[in-house]
Simulated assay, not measured.
Amino acid sequence: MSLIWSVSSSLSYVQENNIHSSVTTINTPLSTLITEIISVPSDIYDPRITRPFAIICLFIGSIGNSLSFIVFTQKQLRTHSTFRYLAYLSIVDLIVLYLGLGNLILRDYFLFDIREQNLLLCKFHTFLTYVTTHLSSWILTIVSIDRAIACTVIQLNKRFCRPKSADRIFLAMCIIISLINSHILLFMGSKQTIIHSTINNISSYQQKIDCTHNTSKIYFEFFEKPYSIIDLFSYVLIPFLIMTICAGIIAYRLFFSLSKTTMNKTTKNKTRKGTHRAKQISYMLLILNLVFIVLLAPIVIGQVFQELNQEHRYRLYNSITLLLSYSNHALNFVLYGIASPQFRVTLRQLLGLGNNEITQRRLHTFGLYTSTGL
C-alpha cells in the first residue's frame, strides 16, 4: 500500500531536495526553476508503463465497479449480507482507483498534482488513500468470514449474516480504520516559503507544499518503521491469513463434513444442488485468496527490501507493482461477478437479455441456497 501513496510522496521528497539545491543558485528565474522541477527524471515509476495503464485500468475499473454496484443493490440481491458487502466493495474500489490513478493521470498528462495544491488536500487525499485501500482488503476478509459462518455456525448465522449486520460491520470498519490512520490528518505534509532572486535582485516568494511524512524526525521514524509494519499487516498479511483460514473451513465443511442432518431435512436433489452451489463459492474464495496474494505480494517485498526514500532506484519494479496493486481494485468485479450465477442472471435481467420468466425462475432457485454460497 505504501507504494500507492509514495507515487506522490517520494517524488515530492526528491523535488524538495532539488528545490533546496536550486535555490542556492543566485539569480535563477522562478519560471526556469519550476520547469526544472517538473522535468526532473526522478519519479519512482516509469511513465511509459504507467501512463497507458492508468487510463485503461481506470476505464475498466470504473465500468466494472459501477456495474457491480448496480447489480449488487438490486432488490433480489441486497437482502443478502454477502452481496451487501460486495456492493460496498465496489464503491470503495472505485474511490481507490480515482484517488490513485486519477491523480496519476493528472500528474503525468497535465502536470497537476492534487496533493501539492494546499496542505489540506495533501492530508485529506493521503488519508483517504490509506483508509480506502485498507477498507477494500478488510471487506474481502469479512466476506470470507461471512461465508464461513454461514455454512458452519447456524446460530451465529442468523445474527451475523444479515443485511443490517453487514451495514453495522461496514460502518464499524470505517471508523476503526479511520482512527488508525488519523495521524495522517495531523502530521502529514508541511508548508515552505521559498525565496527566489532574479537578475535585477528582485525577490519573489513561492509557497510550496511538501506532501511527505518527513515533517519531523519523530514522525518520519514512526511512519517508516512502526506504521510501515502496521500498514503491511493490516493491508495484506492479516486479511490474507484470515481469508485462507475461512476458505479452509468452508472447504472442509463442504467436502468432508456434510452432515447427515442436512440430508434428512432436504431432498437429495436439493442437497445435491446446494452442495454444488456451495462448492462454487469455496472454489471462488480459494481463487480470490490466490489472486489477492499474487497481486499484492510485490508490495510486501518492496516494503521489506527497498531502502528508505530510495524508491526512485527501482522504477521498473515499482511500475509493475503499481500495475498489479491497482489491478486488484479494478478487477475484483470479474473474480466475484463471473463466479456468481446470481450476478450473471441479474446482469442479464438489467441488460434485457434472455427470457425474463426464466430469469425470475433462476433467481428463485439460487435464492434457496444463499446460506451456503453466493
Score class of each variant (00 low, 15 high):
V143P: 00
T244V: 10
F292S: 01
A251Q: 06
D113S: 11
Q15K: 15
T261E: 15
F127Y: 13
R78D: 05
T126S: 13
T215D: 05
V143Y: 01
F233G: 03
Y336W: 14
T198Y: 10
N201V: 02
A166Y: 01
I281H: 08
S182I: 08
L350G: 04
I37N: 08
W5R: 10
E36W: 09
F83P: 00
I38M: 12
D146E: 14
F127A: 02
L140E: 00
L324D: 01
L121S: 07
F366W: 14
Y326K: 03
Y227D: 02
L185F: 08
L120D: 11
Y219F: 12
T35N: 15
L324F: 15
S39R: 12
K123D: 02
N157M: 09
R253H: 09
F170Y: 13
A150L: 03
S178G: 09
T133D: 00
P47G: 06
N17V: 04
Y13S: 05
G302Q: 07
S137K: 03
E16M: 10
F59T: 11
V294W: 13
F240P: 00
S2A: 12
Q117D: 05
S234E: 07
S22K: 10
F255L: 07
R362A: 06
R362M: 12
L331C: 07
Y317Q: 08
Y314C: 01
S282G: 15
K273V: 03
H213W: 14
H213E: 08
A251T: 07
R361T: 11
F366S: 01
I199F: 13
L140W: 02
N27Y: 13
R348Q: 13
I293M: 11
G248Q: 10
I194N: 06
N181F: 05
S137L: 03
V153H: 15
K273H: 07
V23C: 11
C246P: 02
M284L: 11
C151N: 08
A330Y: 05
R78C: 07
T370S: 12
S327Y: 04
